[in-house]
Design a protein around this nucleic acid. Structure first.
Length: 341
DNA sequence: CAGGCGTGGAA
DNA sequence: TTTCCAAGCCT
């Protein structure tokens, strides 16, 4: 199966900014390949290629090496990450860059990589295989799906993880395991897709147990999901002299460390308390809806013109530079709503 | 091991 | 409109 898949990859590999072409990797005189592979892998965690591309371009232009990134203030990295989501990745990105700079470079073993902040089992294997040519078993959601179908795994996820990993190990070749991993991911992305797999285009269809069942999309079997609760909350838009009051959120938890509008505590409780931070003539500026991983939020936006700053830390941010404030998407939406009113 | 943790695009 | 999902990690 590996040789069939690699032959397919040699013809159909996607051309991606962080990726070397199939086959022997080109020289890396600046020794930036591990950095670019690591950066792309962190950005790609639970995130689509299309969403990552512009962020990857911005990051490598602004911080071309891991040493440059290690020297950057965390606030600047968080602001550059704004909109990409899962902000603990950005906080760990900075920690990891500093650890790697202290080490004098990226570890080249799976175990060494696994010890870095933000690098789990998948990412350690991916970097070891793709950047360092090590034989590693790379299992992401694509590989899980492809393997579950190849072997028609009836056990449901996540219980089937162990068996799927063992099967992935069994089909991972000793050489070109980086290409093999990327080939599995490209296959999962373009051919062996979650909803309507294109088995007629698949180089492995003759070996696929799920294809023989006639209903390959049934795999992988998954446990039913829980319903998402809904929350409501309020964000406070306090404007004064062409500026707006922004705060920085606590360093962990929802949108941790990110610049934000003040709010009524919806992220810490089932819903916000709606209590304004200062007295004044508040007016309703509308509401925005935003879906998080584990709840849906309706965020009302209340505006106060020429208000005093609320108690606590914060800063008056120029409205003309709001794009560069690094607001997460939720608060960027709320800001647009406030400005539109 | 389950739950917290973003976002945008496709169906 | 709603649901599902995409190169997961950490606690």
């Amino acid at each position: 199966m590996a040789s069939a898949l690699l032959a397919w990859y040699d013809r159909h590999a996607r051309d991606l900014p962080w990726r070397a072409p199939p086959g022997d990797p080109p020289p890396d005189p600046g020794r930036v390949r591990p950095y670019r592979v690591w950066l792309s892998e962190i950005m790609l965690q639970q995130t689509t290629v299309a969403a990552v591309k512009p962020y990857f371009a911005t990051f490598v232009r602004r911080w071309p090496t891991v040493e440059a990134l290690a020297a950057a203030p965390e606030e600047e990295v968080l602001a550059a990450w704004a909109g990409l989501g899962y902000y603990s990745r950005a906080r760990n990105l900075v920690k990891c860059a500093r650890a790697v700079a202290d080490l004098g470079g990226f570890p080249d073993s799976e175990a060494g990589l696994r010890a870095l902040p933000g690098v789990g089992e998948y990412t350690a294997a991916a970097i070891a295989a793709i950047a360092f040519g090590r034989r590693a078993v790379v299992v992401d959601a694509n590989v899980e799906r492809v393997v579950a179908r190849l072997f028609a795994v009836e056990d449901s996820l996540p219980a089937a993880r162990k068996a799927i990993r063992a099967a992935a190990d069994a089909i991972t070749p000793q050489t070109r395991s980086g290409d093999f991993a990327q080939a599995m991911m490209d296959l999962g992305s373009a051919v062996c897709t979650a909803r309507q797999p294109k088995c007629l285009l698949c180089p492995l269809s003759a070996n696929c147990a799920a294809q023989r069942t006639g209903d390959p999309a049934r795999f992988p079997v998954k446990a039913p999901k829980k319903a998402k609760p809904r929350r409501t909350g309020t964000a406070w838009w306090i404007a004064r002299g062409g500026r707006v009051w922004l705060v920085r959120r606590p360093g962990r938890g929802m949108l941790g460390g990110m610049r934000a509008l003040p709010d009524d505590g919806w992220s810490a409780r089932a819903s916000g308390d709606g209590a304004p931070p200062v007295a004044g003539e508040w007016r309703a500026a509308g509401a925005v809806r935003h879906g998080f991983t584990h709840f849906d939020l309706e965020l009302r936006v209340m505006a106060l013109v020429d208000g005093p700053p609320p108690p606590g830390e914060g800063e008056w941010w120029p409205l003309a530079d709001l794009e560069s404030a690094g607001l997460p998407t939720l608060f960027a939406k709320a800001a647009r709503r406030a400005i539109a009113r």
